[in-house]
Design a protein around this nucleic acid. Sequence first.
DNA 1: TAGCGTCAAATTATATACAGTTCGTACGTG
DNA 2: CACGTACGAACTGTATATAATTTGACGCTA
Lengths: 244, 244
Amino acid sequence: MVRTLLQPKAGNEEWDSQEAETLTGEATRRIRQSILDGELEPNTRLNEVHLCETFSISRTPLRAALQTLAGEGLLIYAANRGFTVRAFELTEIVDSYEMRVLGEGLAARLAAERGLSDAGRQRIEESLVRGDRLVAGLSPIESQQDEYSAINDIFHGAIHRSSGTQVVADVLARCHIPRVSARNIMVLTHDEMKIRNQFHHDIFDAILCREPQKAEDLMRRHVAGVKAAMVIALSRRRTSPNKD
Amino acid sequence: MVRTLLQPKAGNEEWDSQEAETLTGEATRRIRQSILDGELEPNTRLNEVHLCETFSISRTPLRAALQTLAGEGLLIYAANRGFTVRAFELTEIVDSYEMRVLGEGLAARLAAERGLSDAGRQRIEESLVRGDRLVAGLSPIESQQDEYSAINDIFHGAIHRSSGTQVVADVLARCHIPRVSARNIMVLTHDEMKIRNQFHHDIFDAILCREPQKAEDLMRRHVAGVKAAMVIALSRRRTSPNKD
DNA sequence: TAGCGTCAAATTATATACAGTTCGTACGTG
DNA sequence: CACGTACGAACTGTATATAATTTGACGCTA
């Protein structure tokens, strides 16, 4: 049969070039997902041989995957002691949001200064359409949180790319990790989704109209709002349980 | 005679735990240095076997080192095609400074909010003493640029740690890379060193006095000044040579 | 001569064997 | 019984052999 013609698997989003079609890349994605989904709990020390058997690969590609994830900040490495799942303290999560406020604002500003590519504009518009549909209550209630999360990733990811600077995108990816690691904790109300959806629209308009200052300001307020909601949700779950 | 003890090796800065006493760590440091020093030029495609012979190690620790450096953003990886030294466009460098303005400002603000540890305060004071000595003209002229660079790393590094948040320090490390990769280009005048040294003093005072807003503001202006100088220096070297 | 398919050399990806370190445990000593 | 030491199992670090992929050159065809 056809051998070359390498495509991402049908129905799958495009891959990072790094994670295509090698055991290493496959393992990287699966382990990352396990961590973000909470299957691998924080502070767990990873046993290489055991993980090898789990994924049915040898230690070489496994270690490569672990190195990559350590580089992403998801794992912590200690010489002769291997890798450990990184734990994020509440402080760390709050501060990373503070960083994200600034970074997302910068990305929006740069995007507004430089304009959107056709592909970027289309991706954002797609996310806005889906957002409107969500807010209108046309999605199944069970999947609303996941749908909002997906929409959010598309919207912000498109803006990161549109900033035109890899470093900015990298920085935001790093700030994104503590957020995701706590994702399950926050449940959005319908009103919150409405507000955020409106912010997405306004930010998009500011970028389209080439108003960098306005785009940055709106984005900062948007992310600051998300931060506040997250901190409140986290505090509820994490504060000392001595006063039940 | 205030001197910090516990130095890993005489004259050597302390190591990341990741890079201690393994061939992988050693290779990581050496290759990183080669890249930052410009021995390995941008867009060079790295040949694993060749590098193995250069460093007298086998491919396993070498690949581990390359993966780590790719995670730091110094190398770019493509599946089945290996690693390439990353090149930073002028735009990328400018934007990473923009990010750094915000990140360094945040770090200073957080440090001011939370206060300095004894170790942190000592490190900063040490850098200030050395800065004053430098500005007073008591250092050999040939080594002034290197001395300023070292002082700078100590000062800002101490503040990054004092922010109390790993994510912030990671973000700034990522912004630091394009800067260093262009380090040789900028030559500081004595007056510029004086101005920057004064900024260091003022920022330190603001942090000590627990004035977060002031610390952030000063730090932003400080880094913005550095950015301006760098951009001017880079433009001189890089702009199209069609109008000599 | 331009385009295309094929093959071999070079290079990367993976598996696995072996070496070195860590860490828990059991034993000996005070 | 407390404490330190030594030993061994478990684990990570490294080397190297083998498999898969890329790359460039060569020759064939239209």
